[in-house]
Amino acid sequence: MISYLVLTPPGGARDDRPARLIADKGRWLAFFFPAFWLLFHRAWLAGIAVLLLQTVPAVLLADVAESWQATLAGMVLNIALGLLVSLEGPLFVAGRLVAGGWTLADIVPAPEVGLAEAAFAERQAASRAATAPALPGGAAAGNATYDLFGPQGVR
């Protein structure tokens, strides 16, 4: 099962605009191209930092490229950066959205995004029904009267 982070847009009620679901799982494209994946998802500072971490050691180690230790160090660094961005990149994007005013509304476990959307909609409907205010005058409770401390019985 995949956990989906459900983010609602800033401003207005939660039902005004559609929520954004972000799957908390690894991304293969982010593993093979971490800097470009971050830049594509508008994580500019992190993307530039990863790009520098990938290219600067390669340029600096170009003189000792015949050494197997330098080649191994470059490979380990690229694999580590790829794993980091692949596994934590979606959470980084979600954190950037939350910093921009989006709200983390729910975390929904589901095997696919369509079922996650349906589960979130069902949870929203259930929470709206549970938090619906009781009508004064007893329209919903058989004509019970209400005072400061709660219902006073049925008349």
Rank of each mutant, 00 (worst) to 15 (best):
V85D: 06
L115H: 12
F32P: 00
A73I: 15
G82H: 08
P34W: 07
P136E: 01
L53N: 07
L61G: 10
V6L: 05
L104C: 14
I22N: 06
G95A: 11
Q54F: 04
A110F: 14
A80R: 04
P133C: 05
A19P: 08
A99T: 14
A30Q: 01
I79A: 14
E66C: 06
W28S: 03
D147R: 04
A134P: 00
P90F: 12
G153F: 03
L115S: 13
A19C: 08
P111V: 15
L51Q: 09
A94C: 13
A46P: 01
G95C: 09
V6Y: 02
L38A: 02
G114R: 12
A132E: 04
G47A: 03
A13Q: 09
Q54N: 08
G12W: 04
R123A: 09
F31I: 03
F31G: 04
W37V: 07
I2F: 06
R155H: 02
Q54P: 02
G114M: 11
F40L: 06
L5I: 13
A121E: 14
P9Q: 11
Q69T: 13
A105Q: 12
P18Q: 09
T103P: 07
T55R: 02
G89L: 11
A121P: 06
G142I: 02
L77G: 10
F40Q: 01
L77N: 15
A23F: 08
A65C: 05
W37M: 02
F32L: 10
L52S: 10
V50Q: 02
L61D: 08
Q69G: 03
E66V: 10
A13C: 04
S86E: 07
G47W: 07
G150D: 00
P57S: 10
L97Q: 15
L52C: 09
R155N: 03
A94E: 13
A110N: 13
L81A: 10
E112K: 15
T145F: 00
Q152N: 03
E122N: 09
W102V: 11
V64I: 11
A65K: 07
L84C: 12
G150Y: 00
V93M: 10
L61K: 06
A49I: 10
V59D: 02
F120E: 10
R17H: 12
G95P: 04
P90K: 13
L84S: 12
P90A: 12
Q69M: 10
A49R: 04
W68Y: 09
D24H: 11
I107G: 03
G12V: 07
G89T: 14
G47M: 02
A129T: 05
P90T: 14
A99S: 15
A13L: 10
A23N: 04
F31Y: 08
V154P: 00
L21W: 08
W44P: 01
L39D: 01
A23E: 03
L29D: 08
